[in-house]
Design a protein around this nucleic acid. Structure first.
Length: 927
RNA sequence: GCGGGGGUAGCCAAGCCCGGUCAACGGCGCCGGAUUUAGGGUCCGGUCUCGCAGGAGUUCGAGGGUUCGAAUCCCUUCCCCCGCACCA
């Protein structure tokens, strides 16, 4: 089909659909409510997004045809900071941002100018999303569309958080964040020029004493304090003495600034060059008296700029000390081992360094060695018995806590990789935010509640259950508020905004009333109103019952949702969060019923990524290939939970398949009302396809369903056409098949099917036509066996003909005699088929036949193992008259083989070969 | 490191849970043929190796084991992908 006519066909179908997918509950009719994670509209949709929204659409269309009231709603998640960053970049005429938005996403320049307002961005792309989703044929109830910054929605979120707060699930605490001093703001990934992968790590400061001054050394391994032999400072670095929270600390100048951001009162008193510190003696209760030594590797930007040295277990420390000792200095210092590790000597750091033949501390392999030793000690190491013998894994935490409690230690945060740079080009530091609000996902009681519901939730695919269970266990408290971004303000502390992963947890409930709540004045939407609407709780002062009763009714008609669809990487946050929130807020009967987890999308084998430009826009795909082709490809190339790979050449071939399907169906419209020899066979097979396809879709296997409904039926049709008498192409049976076929494919390729359904003379939309049901009365097992026998025989003849160098003149098909059929049945019905030969030979008649019978029994055993079990089962049920099957199809056989065919009983044949005939495997002789 | 999931013929990908249907579904690619003979579309056939009778041999990351029999069960080992949070 030409692109123009394809697009006008699609437009015509969309016109016919109108708002048919707007869903209202109908009393007495079962509902099916499915939701998919709403998109964050900050850019154009690509084919990966397309798959995300198409899977639920296919499922929605399927259940709609099965007579359910189906609700498939859509909204837009605009909460958060990314869009703020984008608008800033556009305002600053950032070339990369302009290229992405104007070039790749094709936003007109005049629209782009308006993007300096972040709300304009989400407004523009929300409309784009809806437009493209409609192009793709998504059967969404658009009346319910909203965004997460609509005033009504904000009221809803305020209510939700109010409930959580009352229940004690929202608490206050301090939290380290990335922070730009110049912007005076926390910064997200999108705001970073450099270091977006840097993680905040938690150091313990071990406080050594130098006279009246404390020297804090930062470490990730506080348990090694027992093995400290010295400290390191960089002699070329300027240190400062500073008043910190009433004490005097000695740290690098950089560290003093950082500490000021981390809940410390810092006043710099004087500068001290690193060189002046060398050879001073410091003390610590757990480490004793140790000297300060010079080392070039000490980085003033790293934590405090002072390092404690554990040469027995830290390769850097070992090498640096060795370097000095090779110059004849500090030779009195010896490593103090405190950890034993299987497979390593007393001093693992020494082992590693010597094995790698490292000559000095500037060796590039030092980081790798450090990693190796640390991993070995962390996973397998134990403290010496004199220190309690705990595993390193345990001791790291217990010693750290002990130091903090008893020896003045404290915590300092630092990035694991540096530098981290803001878009404003300022350095980024770790800052402790006070008064951060947390959702207490660590609460064991809350976890238990979720765990109690989890077993009843249907998960697709089932393998993800372990991941959910683990996530519930592992989840810690979640910082649920932000200072910057779009979103709803925390009702009791409006200086904070509720962050995106927290305001998107129970909105599935909001969809059920979104189109009606919009009609109300937001001022009416008090917590009491939502208490009634969603929980049925009526406080004495609640006045608006009458107004809200229809909404409550509709909520209860749809809720709980049946399935939630989302991507695999959201298991560890969004999908589990929403279980927590549902558990906390809704009663047991309104808990989620199921979830379907998606795989990811690849483009020509590489991961799709907007920032790398490796995307194919959904709109372009729809325009180039047509909506049905895009749909069928995305549904057919992989099951929803598997990764799929978009390849243009495969998509083109999908398009030809649809054209073939359409041509086949259209041909039958004019077909004569004749009947043929294999009509009943075709319709019998069709019942099986309907059953299997239905089962596949019930379990969300779109690929399997398509295989069955499309390729399965197509293969049958090929055989059917082949079996028609000369000059016939089939008749009435084909028309019946097509009526079913068009409906089976309607969820996948609704545009084509809608058009064909009309062309076939049906009233109404195929989208609402009844789903085909398998009719057991049409099953013809004997016919199916007969056709199976024919096709296997033809195949055998062809393969023999191919091998033979002779010019054949005729074919003889010799059918196995009755006594072999009896052997076959005996063996097929036997519990233990391996003992079957003995079983057969118990029979008097068979014994008389002697070796001939024993051989036949062996051959039948082999054959039965090779046939599909289902087929063997059918052969037991049905008495198949093979000779009659062949006789009836002789004309066909001769045409198919291109030779005269003679059908005989094996025992009447003159050919010696005929004696090898087995049931369902006639002897074939080529003359 | 922790947790989850995988490795199947040129590619993608079924099958594994419930061992014999498996030389291994299906699609793509490739090769050959047919067609109102366009290298395009459609249809038919082939596509691990060998084979003048429908068969045999060797394969399902690697190695070992259980079994009459293993891609499928058990053990060991190598490799790959995903998530690990304040980011949607």
């Amino acid at each position: 089909m030409e692109r123009d006519s394809m697009q006008s066909m699609e437009a015509a179908v969309r016109e016919r659909w109108g708002d048919a997918f707007a869903a209202d509950p109908v009393p007495g009719t079962a509902k099916f409510y499915l939701t998919v994670a709403y998109p964050y509209p900050s850019g154009a949709m690509h084919v990966g997004h397309g798959r995300t929204y198409l899977v639920p659409d296919v499922v929605a269309r399927f259940w709609r045809m099965r007579g359910r009231r189906v609700l498939y709603p859509m909204a837009f998640h605009v909460t958060g900071a990314p869009v703020i960053g984008i608008s800033k970049r556009i305002a600053n005429h950032d070339p990369a941002a302009i290229k992405l938005y104007h070039g790749l996403y094709r936003v007109p320049m005049d629209v782009l100018e308006r993007f300096v307002d972040p709300l304009e961005i989400v407004r523009y792309f929300s409309d784009e999303y809806e437009r493209v989703m409609r192009m793709a044929g998504l059967s969404i109830d658009w009346r319910r569309r909203f965004t997460t910054v609509d005033p009504h929605y904000s009221k809803f979120i305020e209510w939700q958080f109010g409930r959580l707060y009352e229940k004690g699930y929202v608490v206050r605490g301090a939290h380290p964040v990335r922070y730009c001093p110049l912007c005076d703001n926390p910064v997200g990934d999108h705001d970073l020029l450099e270091g977006d992968k840097a993680e905040v790590i938690r150091f313990v400061l071990v406080m050594f004493r130098l006279g009246d001054t404390l020297v804090p050394t930062a470490t990730l391994r506080p348990e090694t304090v027992y093995g400290v032999t010295n400290l390191w400072v960089n002699p070329d670095v300027m240190y400062v003495r500073a008043a910190v929270d009433g004490e005097i600390w000695l740290v690098s100048r950089e560290a003093a600034e950082k500490l000021a951001l981390q809940e410390h009162e810092v006043r710099i008193l004087e500068e001290v060059p690193g060189s002046a510190l060398v050879d001073q003696i410091v003390t610590h209760p757990l480490a004793g008296e140790v000297p300060i030594l010079p080392a070039a590797f000490v980085d003033p930007e790293m934590a405090t700029g002072v390092v404690m040295s554990v040469p027995a277990h830290a390769p850097f420390d070992y090498v640096a000390l060795r370097d000095l000792q090779q110059e004849g200095r500090y030779t009195e210092l010896v490593p103090r081992p405190l950890i034993t590790v299987d497979g390593w000597g007393e001093c693992p750091a020494k082992d590693a360094v010597e094995r790698a033949k490292v000559t000095n501390q500037h060796d590039t392999r030092m980081d790798a060695l450090t990693q190796e030793v640390y991993s070995a000690e962390f996973s397998k190491g134990r403290l010496h018995d004199r220190l309690g013998g705990a595993t390193v894994r345990e001791a790291r935490d217990t010693v750290g806590e002990f130091l903090c409690a008893e020896h003045g230690s404290t915590v300092m945060y630092e990035f694991d990789t540096r530098p981290v740079v803001c878009r404003c080009s300022s350095r980024v530091f770790v800052k402790i935010l006070h008064d951060q609000w947390f959702l207490t996902y660590s609460d064991p009681a809350w976890k238990d509640q979720v765990k109690a519901y989890l077993p009843d939730i249907s998960l697709v695919p089932p393998e993800v259950r372990a991941e959910f269970e683990r996530t519930v266990d592992w989840l810690k408290d979640w910082a649920a508020t932000r200072r910057v971004g779009l979103g709803t303000r925390l009702p009791w502390d409006p200086t904070w905004l509720i962050e995106p992963l927290s305001d998107s947890t129970i909105y599935m409930a909001y969809y059920t009333v979104a189109h009606r709540i919009r009609e109300l004045d937001p001022a009416l939407l008090t917590p009491a109103a939502f208490d009634y609407l969603f929980l049925g709780v009526e406080s004495p002062e609640f006045q608006d019952r009458e107004l809200l009763a229809p909404l409550r009714e509709e909520f209860l008609a749809w809720y709980p949702y049946d399935y939630r669809f989302s991507a695999k990487d959201l298991i560890s946050n969004h999908l589990t969060f929403q279980l927590f929130h549902h558990a906390a807020i809704f009663p047991p009967e309104l808990q989620p019923k199921g979830m379907v987890v998606f795989g990811m999308g690849l483009l020509n084998g590489a991961k799709m990524s907007s920032s790398k430009g490796n995307v194919f826009l959904l709109e372009d795909a729809l325009a180039e290939f047509g909506a049905d082709t895009v749909r069928m490809f995305l549904m057919g190339s992989a099951e929803p939970w598997q990764d799929f790979d978009w390849r243009n050449e495969l998509v083109s071939s999908t398009r030809r398949q649809i054209e073939r399907f359409e041509a086949t169906v259209r041909d039958t419209i004019a077909a004569p009302d004749t009947s043929g020899p294999v009509d009943d066979w075709l319709l019998s097979r069709l019942q099986r396809h309907v059953t299997r396809m239905t089962a596949s879709l019930e379990s969300f296997q779109t690929r399997q369903a398509l295989q069955e409904a499309f390729f399965g039926v197509e293969a049958d049709l090929r055989w059917y056409v082949r079996r028609q008498p000369e000059g016939s192409t089939g008749g009435a049976a084909l028309r019946e098949l097509c009526s079913v076929w068009v409906r089976l494919l309607a969820p996948f390729i609704p545009f084509t099917c809608e058009t064909l359904w009309q062309a076939l003379g049906n009233e109404g939309l195929v989208s609402f036509a009844p789903w085909p049901e398998a009719d057991p009365a049409r099953d013809r097992p004997a016919l199916e066996l007969g056709e199976e026998l024919l096709s296997r025989t033809v195949e055998d003849v062809e393969s023999i003909l191919k091998l033979l160098p002779i010019t054949p003149s005729a074919v003889e098909i010799a059918v196995a005699p009755a006594w072999k059929r009896e052997i076959f049945r005996t063996i097929a019905a036997a519990d233990d088929r391996n003992a079957a030969v003995r079983l057969v030979m118990q029979n008097e008649d068979m014994r008389r036949r002697g070796k001939e019978a024993a051989d036949a029994a062996k051959q039948c055993t082999t054959l039965i193992h090779r046939l599909p079990p289902e087929l063997v089962e059918n052969l037991l049920q049905v008495e198949l008259d093979e000779a009659a099957v062949f006789a009836a199809a002789r004309e066909f056989l001769e045409r198919a083989i291109g030779l005269p065919v003679r059908i005989v009983g094996a025992e009447e044949s003159a050919h010696p070969k005929a004696s090898v005939a087995l049931p369902f495997k006639p002897a074939i002789t080529i003359e």
